[in-house]
Structure formats: structure tokens, C-alpha cells
């Protein structure tokens, strides 16, 4: 039996944290989350009691919190910092892929 590992996208509509659940289960505090929401770091709608946070949103908020707490990145700069970090990660991954392909073609040249 062959075992192939595929990566697929999942629609995790059953795994969203409420604001209360998120503050209970993580180091995040409600006022910090609210500030991040206002800055567009996590997309939610309605009143705070209706907010739902996806796993990627939680990871993003926790990363924002660590940057804010440890590096004293001002909250207003967090969206830019996170965006730049994500772009750096993306570009590193893309460069690694291109280098792998280049090595592959050089091997066949």
C-alpha cells in the first residue's frame, strides 16, 4: 500500500474560538485582541460577543502579542510588521523552491 502525503485546504467552520474561549485558552487579553481587531489583524464581524477567531487568526494574534511584548513593537506597527514577516517567509520559501528546481535542471543539463 502506498502512502502519499498530500496537503489540502480545510474549511474549519467547526473550530472557531469565541473571545471568551480565546482569552481563557491563551495568553491573549481581551483589550489587546480588541486593539488588533480594530487594526485589521483579525477579521471578525458584529459585536465582541459574536466574534469568532479561526486557528490562523489565533496564531497571528499570538505572534502579534509576542512581538508587542518582547520587542515592544507598537500596536499600530503590528500590521505592517506581520505583513513584512509573512512576505519574507513567502519569499524565502519561493527562493528555496526555485533553487531546488535550478539544481534539478542543472543535474539534467
Amino acid at each position: 500500500m502506498t502512502t502519499t502525503v498530500l496537503t489540502v485546504e480545510a474549511d474549519a467552520d467547526g473550530l472557531w474560538w469565541t473571545l471568551h474561549q480565546l482569552t481563557s485558552a491563551s495568553v491573549l487579553q481581551a483589550d489587546f485582541i480588541a486593539e488588533c481587531v480594530a487594526l485589521g489583524l483579525a477579521e471578525v464581524s458584529g459585536e465582541p460577543v459574536e466574534w469568532r477567531f479561526s486557528p490562523p487568526a489565533r496564531m497571528r494574534l499570538e505572534k502579534a502579542w509576542r512581538l508587542h511584548r518582547d520587542l515592544e513593537v507598537p500596536a499600530s506597527a503590528l500590521p505592517l510588521v506581520l505583513q513584512l514577516l509573512e512576505e519574507i517567509d513567502y519569499l524565502h520559501a519561493e527562493a528555496a523552491q526555485l533553487q531546488a528546481r535550478l539544481r534539478h535542471w542543472e543535474g539534467h543539463g
Binding site: 502525503v5 489540502v8 480545510a10 467552520d13
Partner: peptide, 23 residues
């Protein structure tokens, strides 16, 4: 209990493992 919607790609073979990141 997590409820997830998973898209299984066409041609997935028996015994394959779908890795759903972060779930």
C-alpha cells in the same frame, strides 16, 4: 470535537494520508 470540511482531491489513492495543517 472538531467539525471540519475537507476537500479530498480527485485520484486520491487508498492508504494516502491527507495532512490538514493546523487542525
Amino acid at each position: 470535537i472538531k467539525k471540519l470540511k475537507v476537500k479530498v482531491p480527485a485520484g486520491t489513492a487508498e492508504g494516502s494520508v491527507l495532512r490538514i495543517k493546523g487542525q
